[in-house]
Design a protein around this nucleic acid. Structure first.
Lengths: 123, 123
DNA sequence: ATAATACATGAACATATATTCATATGAGCA
DNA sequence: TGCTCATATGAATATATGTTCATGTATTAT
């Protein structure tokens, strides 16, 4: 068996730069990694969650603190914390009736700061 | 006029750590920055767009190349390229009937790689 | 045990968004 | 001009997602 580039499903057009497509295909990360990456950014792609994470950059906070800070309902915050929990971006500890949330990851702040840098350079 | 922390809208509960909320509020970036940041990540939060960007990391490509590479319709790719264009993440040049797209930003790869690092450390 | 509190969660609803389909635009060529 | 091709785009549809509302659960206090 020869190469693995026999299956170019063809666009309607014939302007396919085959060598480029084949080479890029080889250089691309695995499908699963790209999917996971998009899922991670999807979590970052909501204002409420971005705000929560920035808040937790500064301090550990309980659910009610965050709700007051962002002027949103406790339920809305709780739902979003759930998303952040599932993405393993935050951790929590229970102290009596109060649940305190904090960051679980070092990279997030770096990713965010680089995002802000990008935005600022667009001005 | 004194401080600007008179307006704590109060959660249903009374467990509000006022000093923390006030301090975090001061440390948070501007509302607009956080909104823009979420918008940027929203663009990254789609598998198709992530794939397109990774493809363009490797080479400049025309629309048809990308469609073949990702095994998707030309229209779908074109719509997503529009989103990436609006976010100023890609640029393009026209050569005859063919339009070639390439990256317009240095940060994106760094942000993506840090995202992948995060994902890999979760294993 | 009962009540109160801090948080979690399921269902419903409204909104956003990704793809498809049909068609428009714009460039090269006969 | 008329035709073909590469790409862009508007409308429609299906799906995903964020918030609210109502309620469940776990912990503390009486």
């Amino acid at each position: 068996m020869s190469s693995g580039n026999a299956e170019l499903p063809l666009c309607s057009s014939n302007v396919v730069h085959k060598e480029i497509v084949v080479r890029v295909r080889e250089e691309m990360p695995r499908e699963e990694s790209l999917y996971d990456l998009a899922e991670l950014f999807k979590v970052f792609g909501d204002t409420t969650r971005v705000k929560i994470l920035y808040a937790l950059f500064a301090a550990e906070m309980c659910v009610c603190d965050i709700a007051v800070l962002l002027n949103m309902s406790q339920s809305a915050i709780s739902h979003q914390l759930r998303v952040l929990k599932q993405a393993r971006l935050v951790k929590f500890r229970r102290q009596g009736k109060v649940v305190y949330y904090s960051l679980n990851d070092e990279h997030v702040k770096q990713i965010f700061d680089q995002g802000l840098t990008h935005i600022n350079e667009l001005i």
